[in-house]
Amino acid sequence: MSIQHFRVALIPFFAAFCLPVFAHPETLVKVKDAEDQLGARVGYIELDLNSGKILESFRPEERFPMMSTFKVLLCGAVLSRVDAGQEQLGRRIHYSQNDLVEYSPVTEKHLTDGMTVRELCSAAITMSDNTAANLLLTTIGGPKELTAFLHNMGDHVTRLDRWEPELNEAIPNDERDTTMPAAMATTLRKLLTGELLTLASRQQLIDWMEADKVAGPLLRSALPAGWFIADKSGAGERGSRGIIAALGPDGKPSRIVVIYTTGSQATMDERNRQIAEIGASLIKHW
């Protein structure tokens, strides 16, 4: 067993022997301040990774656009098919120029040779490549099948209805392509620590998230040296922004954090800054 596999296998073990965790309302004060600064709703939840206990939450059962955070769930569904012998990570998928959609920095470079399922998941999570996500959605049967996968996990809230990039439209009061912070946090925890996926697939999923290259201005910008984070960000229309993450000190994750916002007129930089400040408060009061 590799060191990384050992780390993920012992996530519940280490967490069980940690000192009790206590909620700190100071972080919620910052979440509410972010709402004021952005002029928009902000949803927040913080779960203990081992027990699933909610440590703090704000608007945990209000719907927010998922945006690209759905790509972690998508690759979880792909990995479940791999575990069941219905898919192979090494299978190569070929596609054409007509398949390319807006923001496809990886797939646009491989029109000639195609990409493997493993490479597509890596591109979808680490670079948020939209064509990679659409190609992977095709392998599982489309958005409705991802929703069905989530329902089978016990998540009857999260739903995907459309493809990239239309799913980022974020129309107010439109339930399409949305989740709730509580539902997303619980589902992410199941994917990373539950028995739904094999140990190898859980490790692969967290490795992809740990290698995320496009979430630097968010929670990662607030992390002290030595902290662990595996995350996936999302951005959408109407001032929408979000991030889902597993993080913790001492090089291992111990909490799940989900943050979503929508309806702001603020710039992307300002949305990023507010999420980073929430992260800084979380870490300060850990």
Rank of each mutant, 00 (worst) to 15 (best):
G226S: 06
L135S: 13
H151M: 09
A246Y: 12
V157W: 08
D83T: 05
L197I: 02
Y95I: 00
L196N: 11
M127I: 06
G226V: 08
A170S: 02
L223T: 08
I229K: 06
E61M: 10
L136Y: 12
N98C: 03
M184C: 07
M66P: 09
L197E: 09
Q265F: 10
F70T: 05
L135W: 09
E175Q: 02
K213L: 10
L219G: 09
W286P: 11
G194A: 09
H94Q: 12
A170H: 01
G85D: 05
P253H: 11
I283T: 15
N98V: 02
M184D: 08
Q37W: 06
A225F: 03
Q86W: 06
V72I: 12
L111Y: 02
E175K: 02
R271F: 15
A230S: 07
E210L: 07
G43K: 03
L135N: 11
L47P: 04
I93A: 15
G239Y: 14
R238H: 14
T158I: 15
T126Q: 00
Q37R: 06
A246G: 07
E195Y: 00
N152S: 13
K109S: 12
K32I: 01
Y260W: 01
K252H: 07
F149E: 14
M184W: 05
E61W: 05
S254T: 06
L192R: 04
P25V: 06
T179C: 05
M268W: 05
E62M: 15
E102R: 07
G251S: 01
N130R: 02
W208M: 11
K213H: 03
I93K: 13
E56D: 13
G279S: 07
Q37N: 08
Y260A: 00
A225Y: 00
A200I: 02
L79F: 10
L282K: 01
L188C: 11
E35D: 07
A235Q: 10
L219A: 11
G279E: 10
L191K: 12
E61T: 10
H94P: 12
F70G: 05
M184G: 08
V78T: 06
T187H: 03
Y95T: 01
A77L: 10
D250P: 09
I171W: 12
L167H: 04
R118N: 12
T69S: 03
A230Y: 13
D33N: 01
L247P: 02
P143A: 08
I171F: 04
L150F: 08
E61A: 13
P60H: 04
M268S: 13
I206R: 12
E26D: 00
F58D: 15
I93P: 15
R238G: 13
G141P: 07
M127Q: 03
T262L: 11
P65D: 11
S254P: 02
M180C: 00
D177T: 05
A246Q: 03
D36M: 10
L100R: 14
H156V: 00
L74E: 10
M115P: 01
L89C: 12
H110A: 10
F64Q: 08
P249M: 10
D212G: 13
N50V: 07
L223S: 04
W227M: 02
L137H: 07
L196I: 10
R176G: 01
L79E: 06
N173Y: 06
N130V: 05
A245F: 10
I171K: 00
A225C: 03
K109Y: 13
E35N: 12
I54L: 04
S96Q: 03
W286A: 06
L223F: 01
R63H: 05
L188D: 09
I278F: 15
I45Y: 13
P65F: 08
D161I: 06
Y95C: 03
W286K: 12
T147P: 11
M67Q: 08
S128T: 01
E119S: 14
R271C: 01
D113V: 02
E164D: 14
A200S: 09
I259H: 10
A230P: 07
L282C: 14
G263A: 03
T179D: 15
R271V: 03
N130E: 00
R81Q: 00
Y44W: 13
Q86T: 09
P25T: 05
G279I: 11
E270P: 09
P25S: 07
T27Y: 14
D83H: 03
K109M: 13
A183W: 09
R241H: 13
A182L: 11
D161M: 00
M66H: 08
H151I: 04
S122V: 15
D231A: 10
R189M: 09
T131P: 11
Y103P: 04
K53C: 02
R118M: 12
A230D: 02
L199C: 01
S104G: 07
E62T: 05
R91T: 07
A276E: 10
Q37A: 08
T69C: 03
N98P: 03
I45T: 02
L196H: 13
L218V: 06
G234I: 13
G85E: 02
A77D: 11
E102W: 10
G236A: 13
A225N: 07
W163Q: 13
V258P: 07
A245S: 07
Y103A: 00
T262P: 10
E277F: 13
L120C: 00
K284A: 05
D212S: 14
A132V: 11
A246W: 09
F64M: 09
P249G: 05
N272Q: 08
E169C: 01
T187C: 01
S281A: 08
P253G: 11
N173L: 08
A246K: 02
M153P: 10
D155N: 03
S80P: 07
T193M: 01
P181Y: 14
S254R: 05
G263E: 04
D207M: 08
R176M: 01
N130L: 01
F58K: 15
I256W: 10
A235L: 10
A40G: 05
Q274E: 01
L247N: 00
V31P: 06
S281L: 14
G154H: 03
E237M: 07
L247F: 01
K284N: 05
T131M: 13
L146N: 08
R220H: 07
I125W: 14
H94C: 12
